[in-house]
Amino acid sequence: MRIALKTIFLGMLLLALAACGRKVNPEAGGAFESDSLSYLQLENQCARNQIVQEPVTREIAYMYADFQARFPMAFFSIPERFYDYKIPLIINVDDMEKKLAQLKAKALDEAMLSKNLSGLAIDLFYLYQHSMRYEGQKCQFGMLMKKQFNDTRPYLEMKDYCREKDCSPKIIDALTGSQAQFVQERVVKMCRSFDPSNTNCQAQYNVQSKNRKVSTLLSHYQKRFEKERYDKLFVLRDSHLKFQCEQNEAQVVTMNLKVLSNGWDTEKLGRMLSYVSQMWTRGSFKLAIEIVEEKGSDVIEIIPTNGGISYVPDEDNTQVYLSQSLDAITQKKVLAHEFGHVLGFPDCYTEFYDGQKSDLVYYEISAEDTNIMCSLKSGVSVPDNYLQMLREKSCVFN
């Protein structure tokens, strides 16, 4: 049902929105600029037409398109939302249905709508983005279920606990009540990362608890999880590519990459690649990117896609699928992130599918983290040690 708003109110509302620092991104050709999108919305490896959409996602898409058409200025600039391991984003069909029903009720309340159109637009924007992510990942829920064992929350929660409380063996082994339960749950979850058998992990804990040696088990799984799970989020993959490099007299190393023109507008492609080069250049390391006309085994191909998805296939790190539905500024950031995959770095955000609860779970490691492989929020950059790893492990010198 369409909502009738008085013309004078709508005019005042749009003027107020324009006067509140909301701006059009000129580089995007008039598109609305948003710093709010994370890799959650912008990076995945599923084509949305492979599986029939949930009815609720079609309803959300209709409401979103309808509101965008009627109240475009309400979507002029969307504030950033952040999801970390303490408050992760959890997407499932039931929650989407409940949130859609709530937004529909608000949209039918003309008095409420007149007071908080911007707030409704923000909630609708994120509900739409989350529903598209859910649909975009459905075809790989099986693979994402396996990634549940990479859930870093028990490890990070235990680290937080030990920063606030005494985790010496004597104290841990004597814990009772809720604190003992807290430690037990996290030890068992870290164990399950390596042994899916909950029974076996629980049995290990029970034995060590009876012998008052929980601290030994905790220390074992903390160290193992850190080495085999957490630390690997921030280093080059074992199968990373290597590239031609050269070093000048000032000890500056230049890594040379080639990118296929592939029908792109040369000026646009050049601007995007210049941003990528700047992002991955600092100090004694420089990334140089040359646009070439002929394909080769060492040539990177940027393939435009019409959907909202951007990704580098695991099986071929010389291909970058780049969404064309993004504004120019966001697209450059996404491309810089995807080149991180080309160079061999994994994502350092966490996403998995909980099959028992039918939840798609996503979170970033830290609100303070500005690693471009972990987040797309404002101020992201490439860590210095990433450039050092490239210099030491990915260069082939003639």
Rank of each mutant, 00 (worst) to 15 (best):
T7D: 12
G21P: 00
E27Y: 01
D35C: 15
D35P: 07
Q41I: 13
N44P: 10
R48I: 14
I51M: 04
E54K: 07
R58M: 04
A65E: 07
Q68T: 04
F75K: 05
I78A: 00
P79H: 01
P79G: 11
D84V: 11
D84N: 15
D84G: 14
V93F: 02
D94G: 15
M96L: 06
K99Y: 06
K99M: 02
Q102S: 14
E110G: 09
S114Y: 09
L117T: 04
L117F: 15
L117S: 04
A121T: 11
I122H: 05
F125H: 00
H130C: 08
K147G: 11
D151L: 02
Y155S: 03
L156V: 07
L156P: 10
R163D: 13
I171P: 04
G177D: 10
D195V: 08
T199Q: 15
T199F: 06
C201I: 00
Y205E: 04
L217P: 03
R224V: 09
K232C: 09
R237E: 11
D238M: 11
S239A: 14
K242P: 02
N248K: 04
E249G: 12
Q251T: 15
M255T: 09
N256I: 11
L260P: 12
R271D: 05
Y275R: 06
S277Q: 02
G283C: 00
G283V: 00
G283I: 04
A288T: 03
K295A: 15
E301M: 09
Y311G: 01
T318Y: 11
S323R: 00
D327C: 10
A328W: 08
E338S: 08
E338P: 02
G340Y: 01
G344Q: 02
T350C: 03
G355Q: 14
Q356V: 13
Y363L: 10
E364L: 12
G379K: 09
L390E: 01
